[in-house]
Write a protein that binds this DNA or RNA. Structure first.
Length: 570
RNA sequence: CGGGGAGUAGCGCAGCCUGGUAGCGCGCAUGCUUCGGGAGCAUGAAGCCGCGGGUUCAAAUCCCGCCUUCCCGACCA
C-alpha cells in the first residue's frame, strides 16, 4: 500500500477527551474516530488491525472445530421473554420498536438467538456436540462508556456457544475453548493470564476470564506466589484462617466513648489512637427482602459479590440512610454489631479470633471499645465475604497471594441448561428420551483486545504493534520522493517485498523526513526501512526495529533478503 | 442516577469576570526556499461561539431551560 493512496489521519496533539493511552493512541494514529459516547468508527488503519485480530480468532476457533455463522443484530422481544431476560437484563438492553409497534432489542449477547437456532436444527444426540460462533457487533447501553473502545457501547465481539448432550461432554467443549483462547492470546503476542471468575447473573458452575496484564486494567486479579491459582478479586477465595479464639481473660471492659462526628474508620482510628485492624466495619445491606448486616475488619474491604452469592439473593445494595437508621437506630457512620436485633449478621472470617475491638455504638456520635465476640455480640454466621488482596492466603495452597491488574479480553462460561430449559432446546438420546442440551458460551472482545495490546505495548512515541496484528509488517520511508533515484529504489524494494507476500506500506508522501519518522513511530509498524540519500550515494538502506529501537544498515542488493530474514523475529 | 469539569475553525486552546466588527497555535490550500526526527517566509480558505428562550440599542460574553461530552462514584459479559 502506498501512503498517498491510503488514509491515515494522524493527530499531532492528544485529543482532549481521551484519558487512557490506548484511546489516545488509537485516535492519534488514525485508527478510530468517535461518533458518539461509546460509539466509534473504525478507520482503514484500525480496520486492518481489527481484521488481523479477528482472523487469528477465527483460525483458532475453526481449528477447535467451531463453526462460523452470523446471527441477527436486531432481535425480537419474544425470544428474550422466553429466557426471562427481557425483564431481567435492565437498561443495558437497548430496546426499540418497529413500524408496527413490535418490540425488538439490539443484541448485547446472543444466547437467546443461538438457542433458538439450535432448537430448530438439532434434534438428535447424533448431531452433538456442536459449537457455533460469530464475529460481529454487539450493543450494550453501558451506564458509563469510557476508555475509548475498551468499554464501548457498540463493539465487535467473537461469541461462541457450545451444545452438548451431557455435563461431561460440555466440560470437554469448555476445555477446548479454554485451549483455543490460550492459543489465540499467545498468537496475538499478548502477556495474559486465565483466571477464575465469578459467573455473574448468567449462572453456571464455573467460568474463566482471560486477562491481558496491564497496569491500567480495570480489573484486579490475584495470583498465588507458589501455585498456579489465579482469580479475579470478584471471585478470589481466601483460605479459612485457623481460628485462635481469644481467651476471655484477655477481654477488656466494654465501654462507650463519645466520638463526635467521626464516621469513617480513619477518623475513629486517629481519634482513639488505634489501627483499622482493631475496628469492626459494620455494613448494612438491602437485599430487597430485608436488611442484612455484614461485618469485616476495618482494614479489609467487603466483596459484595461474595456476600451476594453467600446470601443467594437476587439483589444486594448498600442500604440508604433511612434503612441504616431503621436497623441501627443511628445515622450512617455509627453502626456496630452490639445490641442489633431482628437482622441477620454475617461476619467475615477475618474477624475470627479478634478481640477488644472498636465498633459503632448504634447511637449518634458514639462508639464502643473492647467489644468482644460472644460476650458482647453474636453473629449468624462466619463466611468468606471480603475482597482478597496482597498477602492473603491462597485458597489452594495457603501461600501468600499477590495482586496485579488486567484487562478482561475474553470470558468463557459453562452455562448448563439455563437457556435450553427455559427455551426448550432439547434433543433425543439413544433411548429416545428428551433432554435439554448442555450449553457453554465464550466471548472475546475484539476491539478491546486491540486496545489491550496497545495498552500493553507502547512507548512515548506511539504504538508498538505486536507483529501478528500490526496493520503492516514493514514500513518503507522514502525520505525524498522528489528525488527520482530514491523514488525508484524505494518502489523497487516495495514491489519486491510485495512479491514475497510481505505487507508493506510505502511512505511516498512529499513530507519532511521528521514528519514521516514521527508518524512511523506513532503507527507502530514493527519494521521500518529508510530509503534516503545513503541509498543513492552508497547503496545502503537503514532498517529499524520499532520494538527495540535497534538499527542496522544493509546493502541495497541484500535489502530484500535482510528484511525477509528479520520478519520471523518481529 | 449522584458529584465535578468542558462545549468557540479539522485538532489543541484564549476571549466570557467588566456586553460593542471572533482570535492564537497546529493542521488545510497556493507559491518560493528547505529536506535523515513534527522547517521558514508569504498569501489564502475555513465559525449557527452546542441548542432554545429571555434581558439589552447591542449577547460568545449576563439570566433561565435543555442537549452533548469527559472524569470520579454507583452499575456492568
Amino acid at each position: 500500500m502506498r501512503y498517498t493512496q491510503f488514509l491515515i489521519p494522524t493527530l499531532r496533539e492528544v485529543p482532549a477527551d481521551a484519558e487512557v493511552v490506548s484511546h489516545q493512541l488509537m485516535l492519534r494514529s488514525g485508527m478510530i474516530r468517535k461518533l458518539a459516547a461509546g460509539i466509534y468508527s473504525t478507520l482503514p488503519l484500525g480496520e486492518r488491525v481489527m481484521r488481523k485480530t479477528a482472523q487469528i480468532v477465527r483460525e483458532e476457533m475453526n481449528r477447535a472445530g467451531a463453526l462460523e455463522l452470523t446471527l441477527p443484530f436486531v432481535q425480537p422481544a419474544e425470544l428474550w421473554h422466553e429466557s426471562g431476560r427481557w425483564n431481567a437484563y435492565g437498561k443495558e438492553l437497548l430496546r426499540l420498536k418497529d413500524r408496527n409497534e413490535r418490540e425488538f432489542c439490539l443484541g448485547p449477547t446472543h444466547e437467546e438467538v443461538i438457542t433458538d437456532v439450535a432448537r430448530g436444527l438439532i434434534s438428535s444426540y447424533k448431531q452433538l456436540p456442536v459449537t457455533l460462533y460469530q464475529l460481529h457487533i454487539k450493543f450494550r447501553d453501558e451506564i458509563r462508556p469510557r476508555f475509548g473502545v475498551m468499554r464501548a457501547r457498540e463493539f465487535v465481539m467473537k461469541d461462541a456457544y457450545s451444545f452438548d448432550a451431557d455435563e461431561a461432554a460440555a466440560e470437554r467443549s469448555y476445555m477446548k475453548m479454554y485451549e483455543a483462547y490460550t492459543n489465540i492470546f499467545a498468537r496475538l503476542g499478548l502477556r495474559f493470564r486465565a483466571v477464575e471468575a465469578d459467573s455473574g447473573p448468567i449462572g453456571g458452575s464455573f467460568s474463566h476470564e482471560f486477562m491481558v496484564l496491564a497496569d491500567t486494567g480495570e480489573d484486579v486479579i490475584v495470583t498465588c506466589t507458589a501455585c498456579d491459582y489465579a482469580a479475579n478479586t470478584e471471585k478470589a477465595e481466601i483460605r479459612v484462617p485457623d481460628a485462635v479464639e481469644a481467651a476471655a481473660d484477655q477481654f477488656g471492659a466494654l465501654a462507650r466513648v463519645a466520638t463526635p462526628d467521626m464516621r469513617t474508620i480513619d477518623e475513629v482510628c486517629s481519634f482513639l489512637k488505634t489501627g483499622p485492624a482493631s475496628v469492626i466495619k459494620t455494613l448494612v445491606f438491602d437485599t430487597g427482602e430485608g436488611a442484612v448486616v455484614a461485618l469485616v475488619r476495618g482494614d479489609h474491604d467487603i466483596n459484595e459479590i461474595k456476600l451476594k452469592n453467600y446470601l443467594a439473593c437476587s439483589e444486594l445494595a448498600l442500604a440508604d440512610e433511612d434503612l441504616i437508621e431503621k436497623v441501627t437506630g443511628a445515622p450512617r457512620g455509627f453502626a456496630g454489631p452490639e445490641g442489633l436485633s431482628g437482622v441477620r449478621i454475617i461476619a467475615d472470617y477475618g474477624l475470627k479470633g479478634c478481640f477488644n475491638m472498636v465498633a459503632g455504638g448504634n447511637e449518634r456520635d458514639m462508639h464502643v471499645v473492647n467489644l468482644n465476640f460472644v460476650r458482647d455480640f453474636n453473629v449468624d454466621a462466619f463466611a468468606d465475604i471480603r475482597l482478597a488482596g496482597q498477602g492473603d492466603a491462597c485458597p489452594r495452597c495457603g501461600k501468600p497471594l499477590t495482586t496485579t491488574r488486567g484487562i478482561e479480553v475474553g470470558h468463557i462460561f459453562k452455562l448448563g441448561t439455563k437457556y435450553s430449559t427455559s427455551m426448550r432446546a432439547e434433543f433425543l438420546d439413544a433411548r429416545g428420551e428428551s433432554h435439554p442440551m448442555v450449553m457453554g458460551c465464550y466471548g472475546i472482545g475484539v476491539g478491546r483486545t486491540v486496545a489491550a495490546a496497545i495498552e500493553q505495548s507502547h512507548d512515548g512515541d506511539g504504538i508498538i504493534f505486536p507483529a501478528p496484528i500490526a496493520p503492516f509488517t514493514v514500513l518503507i520511508v522514502l525520505v525524498n520522493p522528489t528525488d527520482a533515484q530514491q523514488h525508484q529504489i524505494a518502489v523497487d524494494l516495495y514491489e519486491k517485498l510485495l512479491g514475497h507476500g510481505v505487507e508493506v506500506l510505502l511512505d511516498d508522501r512529499d513530507e519532511r523526513p521528521g514528519i514521516k519518522f514521527k508518524d512511523a513511530d506513532l503507527i507502530g509498524i514493527p519494521l521500518r526501512v529508510t530509503v534516503g540519500r545513503n541509498a543513492v550515494k552508497d547503496g545502503l538502506i537503514d532498517i529499524k526495529w520499532r520494538k527495540t529501537g535497534a538499527q542496522a544498515q544493509a546493502a541495497l542488493t541484500d535489502a530484500v533478503e535482510n528484511v525477509l530474514e528479520a520478519l520471523p523475529n518481529l
